[in-house]
C-alpha cells in the first residue's frame, strides 16, 4: 500500500539528479558546495517558474509555445516603463508584469476556448506575433543596464536568508502551485479535464474554461518571469529567451508530465527544470564544452519520454486473472 503512495517518477528523477551531482562532485568537489548549489537554483529559477505554468497547460491537454515570447515582450515593456518612469514602485512593476502576461495568456486561452482552435496553432501564431510586437515597441533597440533604475534591477538580486529574491519567487510559486494542484478545486479539475474531458462534463466541469484559466496562469507566470529576467540580466532586447519555450516543454517532459494530459505533478516539473539546470551549470565545471548542452537535453527528453511511456503503459484487461479471484 505504502509503495503506491510514493511517486515513482519523481523519486527516480530525484535520484538521477543526485547521481549527476555526485558524478560532478568527483571531478570538482566545489560544485556541491551550498553556495554553488544556491547559484544553480537561482539560475534555474526562471525555468522552474515557466515549467510550472506549462505543466498546468499540458495537464489540460494543451501546449503553450508562446511563453518565451510573452516573457520577452513583458520584459521589454517593463524595461521601457522603467526608463520612462524610473520612480514606479517595484510592487507595481511586478503586478503590471503579471497582468500583462496574464492578458497575453488570456488571448491564447480565448482562442482555444471560444474558437476551439488547436492550442499548438494558436500559440505558434501568438509566439511570432508577440516577438514582432517587441520589435514594434522597441524599434529594435536594446534597453541597457545603465538606463534602468537601481531598484528595478536590484529586486531579483536582493538577498534574503542567503538566497536571492529570484530564487525565493520560484520557491514561493512552487509552494503555491503545490497547494493549488493538490488542495484546490481548480487544481483537481485540471487533472480531471486532462485525464478524461468527457467525464469532466458529467461532473459539472467546463473543459474549455479550465483550459482558458490554465493559459492565463501560464501567461501570468511568463509575464512575471519577463520582469525578473530583464532585471536580473539588466538588459532587454527583441531576442531574449529565444527558443526558451522548448526548454520549458523539455523540463515538463523530463519531469514526467504526459503530453497527452492528465498525468504529472508539481514535483516532477520542478525536478525536470532542476535536472536541466544542473546539466547546464555542470558542463563548464567538468570541462565539457557548453555546446554539448543541447544534445544532452535532447537525449534526456527522449529517454524520459520512453521511460515514462513504459512505466505508464495502461494495463490491458485482465480477464483471466479475475476468474481466479471469482472462484
Amino acid at each position: 500500500m505504502l509503495s503506491k503512495l510514493i511517486p515513482m517518477r519523481e523519486t527516480i528523477l530525484g535520484a538521477a539528479i543526485l547521481l549527476l551531482l555526485a558524478l560532478v562532485a568527483t571531478r570538482f568537489a566545489g560544485f556541491i558546495a551550498p553556495a554553488n548549489l544556491a547559484n544553480v537554483l537561482n539560475d534555474t529559477a526562471p525555468l522552474i517558474i515557466l515549467a510550472l505554468g506549462q505543466m498546468v497547460v499540458i495537464l489540460t491537454r494543451c501546449i503553450d509555445l508562446s511563453v518565451a515570447a510573452n516573457l520577452a515582450l513583458t520584459g521589454m515593456a517593463m524595461a521601457m516603463l522603467n526608463v520612462a518612469m524610473p520612480d514606479l514602485p517595484i510592487a507595481l512593476i511586478i503586478a503590471l508584469s503579471i497582468l500583462i502576461g496574464a492578458a497575453m495568456g488570456a488571448i491564447n486561452g480565448l482562442l482555444v476556448w471560444k474558437l476551439e482552435i488547436p492550442p499548438i496553432v494558436v500559440t505558434l501564431g501568438t509566439m511570432t506575433i508577440f516577438r514582432g510586437i517587441i520589435f514594434l515597441i522597441s524599434e529594435g533597440k536594446w534597453v541597457n543596464s545603465h538606463e534602468m533604475s537601481a531598484a528595478f534591477t536590484g529586486f531579483p538580486r536582493d538577498v534574503m536568508l542567503g538566497l536571492p529574491m529570484l530564487s525565493w519567487v520560484a520557491i514561493l510559486i512552487t509552494i503555491l502551485f503545490g497547494i493549488m494542484m493538490s488542495r484546490s478545486s481548480f487544481g483537481r479539475s485540471i487533472f480531471a479535464v486532462g485525464g478524461n474531458p468527457h467525464a469532466a462534463v458529467y461532473t459539472g466541469i467546463n473543459v474549455g474554461k479550465t483550459q482558458f484559466f490554465a493559459f492565463v496562469l501560464s501567461g501570468a507566470l511568463a509575464g512575471l518571469t519577463g520582469y525578473l529576467w530583464v532585471a536580473r540580466y539588466a538588459v532587454a532586447y527583441v531576442d531574449i529567451a529565444g527558443g526558451f519555450e522548448l526548454e520549458v516543454v523539455a523540463a515538463c517532459v523530463i519531469g514526467g508530465i504526459s503530453i497527452a494530459g492528465g498525468i504529472g505533478s508539481v514535483g516532477g516539473a520542478v525536478l525536470g527544470a532542476l535536472f536541466l539546470g544542473v546539466v547546464k551549470n555542470a558542463l563548464p565545471v567538468v570541462n565539457i564544452s557548453p555546446f554539448w548542452q543541447l544534445a544532452i537535453s535532447g537525449s534526456a527528453i527522449l529517454i524520459a519520454v520512453a521511460f515514462n511511456a513504459q512505466s505508464g503503459k495502461a494495463k490491458g484487461r485482465i480477464i483471466l486473472k479475475t476468474s481466479k479471484d471469482a472462484t
Partner: peptide, 22 residues
Amino acid sequence: LGLPSIVVTIGSMSLFRGISFI
C-alpha cells in the same frame, strides 16, 4: 516504441542540432 511524435521530435530537434553544435 509508440511515443507521441510531438515530444519525440522536440527531443530529436535538440539532439540533432546539439550534435551540430558539438
